[in-house]
Amino acid sequence: MTTARIDARFASLKAEGRAGFVAYVMAGDPTRDQALEILRGLPAAGADIIELGFPFSDPMAEGPPIQRAALRGLKAGLTLKGTLDLARAFRDGDADTPLILMGYLNPIESYGHEAFARDAAAAGVDGVIVVDCPPEEADPLTDALDAAEVSLIRLATPTSDDARLELIARRTSGFVYYVSVAGVTGVKEAQSASVAPAVERVRKASGLPVAVGFGVKTPERAAEIARVADAVVAGSVLVDEVAAALEAGTSPVTAVLARVQALGDAVRGARVTETV
């Protein structure tokens, strides 16, 4: 399995002595073309890694912001195949930024595990996060992704005890995504006091970098998490920028990228200020 792009990115972040910023956006939100423009602008705006959500009709672990984003994506006609096309279009102009797809299992089941893994690899996708596919159910998908050299990125949560962490770490690569709150996306705020020891546990169990997400809304919180994690994920606040821009009749592309810039700057500055 090659996790070349992901590993290289975390290696250079380590060399810089800082955490990475992971930007989550939804495929097709608000249109295919604008989503592509957003994707293409993300690295320059400060995203070290990109998570690209693929829409699902029943996103059971998402709060209202990402639910609405998924609906906009579906309305724009973005299927899983369309998401892979979008990924490829991004990859054509960016050889280095790791690109992770994130979503739910049924569209992948419908596409077929092997076909999906093959087409994702061909589109330049580095990893996949499947929210409703715990380790107990993941072997068939992991087999297909392994064969295509695409990582299955696993989720660890506040409810994962040591035995589960071991299970979670067993067939994963790239990094582990630590869900910092018990809850859906975009509602509760992460408590940084509990995040630090959790990140340490996940790092130890997996031997992999740990990205922390689900409760990051402000630059202040992003900076706090950046001091203890290997990467900080923000999603709901970014897709909410799309919603707000649509409401205001302004450019979603500009709005999302400005927010990425602010959060990315906070992450980049977090450890520097500390050592000054």
């Binding site: 299992l105 715990p134 107990e136 949560t157 589960r164």
Partner: peptide
Amino acid sequence: RFVAETLMP
């Protein structure tokens, strides 16, 4: 048991 990791335990 196709649930989010938070619910598995």
